[in-house]
Each structure stands twice: as C-alpha cells, then as structure tokens.
Nucleic acid binder design. Structure first.
Lengths: 159, 159
DNA sequence: TGATTTATTTCGATAGTCAAACTAAATTGT
DNA sequence: ACAATTTAGTTTGACTATCGAAATAAATCA
C-alpha cells in the first residue's frame, strides 16, 4: 500500500516533527539543570564520540561530529579545562593527539547514555515483542534512508 | 513484559541515537546544498514557527523556539534582510511585531515540510496498516514522555 | 495623570565557528 | 640520506549568534 495514504500519516508526521525539533532542545535543557551544567549538548556529542574505552585522535572525533580541525582544537581546550577529557600525544606518531575521558567525563557519558535508554524505553512502552520488531524495522528504515541521503551528498558521516 | 529485556533493545537504542544525533546535521547539510543555502537550520525553525497562515508576534515565536527576545530581534533582522519574512507592526497594539512569511519564505517552508514528510514516508516503508498503527503508538509514547520531561522542568515548550 | 507592565530593540560582552597561515612530525622519491 | 610533500594539530583574525541589562515606546491600571 502507499503509506502516505494512511489516515494517520499526517498525525504521525506532525508528532515526528515535534520529536526532531525538540529532542535536542530537551537534551540541552536537561543538561543545564543537571550537575553537568557547564557543558553544552555539542560538548556532550564530543564526549560521546570519544566514548568509553577506545582512544581516538582529535581528527577522527572532528570528522564524526562534523567540526573543522580548528574548531575541534578549541572544543578540546574547553573540555580539558573543565576536566572532562584528556589530551595525550601519541608515542607512535607524535603529531597525533589521542583523546580519552577522565573520571568526570565517564560519569557524564554514562548519564547521557541513560538519557537515551530512557527515550528508547519509553518509545517501547507497553509493547509486545512482535510490536517491538515492527518499531525496530521502522527505525531501521529511517536510518537506511538517512544513510542514503548522506551518500547522495557525498559527505562523511558518523554512523 | 519489560521492554528493556528484548534482545533488540540495544540495537534499537543505538539506531535511535544515530537518528537523533544526525537528523539535525543532515537537515543542515541538505539546506546548505539547496537553493536556500543562505539560511541555517535555526533560521528554518524560525520560519517553521511563523508558519504558513497564522500571523504570530515576535515574542510568541521566541518562546516557541526558545530564544530570548533580543536574540529573536536579530534573527528576524537576518531573515527580513534575506527576504524570507516580513515584519509588520500590529494596528491593535503598536508595540507588537507581527511576523509573516514572504513568497520566498513560503517556498522554503513547504520544502522543509516535504523533507519531513519524506522522513515519515521512509519510516513507514513497506508497512501494513496495522504496523503503521504500532509505529504511531510508539512515536506517541515518545512525545508523551518528552512532554512530561518538559513539565517536570517547568519550561515552556512548543508542542 | 502618573506608575507599572508589556513588547521589542539596542548595546556590550562572550562563545563557537571557520578559513588561512603556521608549526612540527612523518613519509616519499630520488 | 635528505629535500619535498603530506599529515595532524594549533594559532590567529574575522564573523555570527547568543545573552543579559538598559533603553524605548506603547498600553493599561490605580
């Protein structure tokens, strides 16, 4: 069937717009009210890209979150000053800066993950296994489409 | 059942994170490559808040998109200069500025709506009516939850 | 009418971004 | 081996978006 013909298409579309236009803002606001009010959502994404265990170079992280190298440098400065991440020069190649989370960084990282797990938990509220499969398929459709848009544009992307 | 126990929870969660972390960026990038490369996604949200028919005051729009009045003023200046919106002093109350879209503004507005309808269309790809209902329920769950978070924080919100 | 409230604007300060120039280290070609 | 090139990151200067505080202007209230 043509899925745009369902009577619920408009309603669903409107709610999706609400979600997309507001998740970021809510995330930002939640952060401001938390113990970690000194970082922005963009900072959080930097921390998220560095992630728990694997050390990444500054330029790897820059690509993942679509920042230029110079903007990455100042973003790192900020987060180092605030005590969330560490900068270490690689021994193998002394040009590269390896990034890692400090204890404080790991704490926010986990809190942020928890925020997202909460969202997913609530998305699936009161759903049966078969329904969860359907939702999973829908989200997977969306990710595939976005991946595709990215390829058309020929830009790097952090998926 | 406890929905966090489904074996697909982690997978779904990861994909959702991908969607949230990237939709904004993709939207931004798509805009940059379009005919409307002179506006940012934030500008687009301003245009979206003004919307097609109902004229809104500057402060109403500011609240909807979580900008301070002063930031709203300069955002409006920007978009007036670029020819997307119009500023008209209300006759009823000459303090208030009523905002409306120009022809150009209405064109981007529709293009942006089309972008979102595309997302929804792809979310529902190859789904049957009953499955669409399930997805709709899931998204509705999420919106309710976000609305709730907003209320807890006691902040205004544009839903 | 004078005081207060409301809607918006202006101003000064700050933060984040980019592009271009630069430094330092590694790699390549001869 | 070593000069030229490439790569990784930093610095600098310019620009834009944002905020908070003060200013302006219009409406409303006592």
């Amino acid at each position: 069937m043509n899925d745009t013909s369902t009577p619920y298409f408009e309603e669903l579309n409107d709610e999706l717009v609400v979600v997309f236009n507001n998740v970021m803002w809510i995330e930002e606001a939640a952060l401001k009210q938390s113990y970690f009010s000194d970082i922005t959502l963009k900072d959080m994404h930097t921390i998220d890209a560095i992630s728990m265990y694997s050390e990444k170079s500054a330029s790897q992280v820059a690509k993942m979150i679509h920042l230029t190298p110079s903007a990455m440098t100042t973003a790192i400065d900020r987060l180092v000053d605030k005590g969330y991440i560490e900068r270490r020069r690689s021994d193998k190649d002394r040009r590269v800066v390896r990034l890692g989370l400090t204890h404080k960084g790991r704490v926010v990282y986990r809190a942020h993950q928890e925020f997202h797990r909460d969202l997913t938990h609530n998305l699936l509220k009161d759903m049966q296994e078969s329904e969860i499969q359907t939702v999973r398929r829908a989200i997977h459709n969306l990710v595939s489409y976005l991946r595709n848009v990215r390829n058309i544009k020929g830009e790097p992307w952090n998926i």
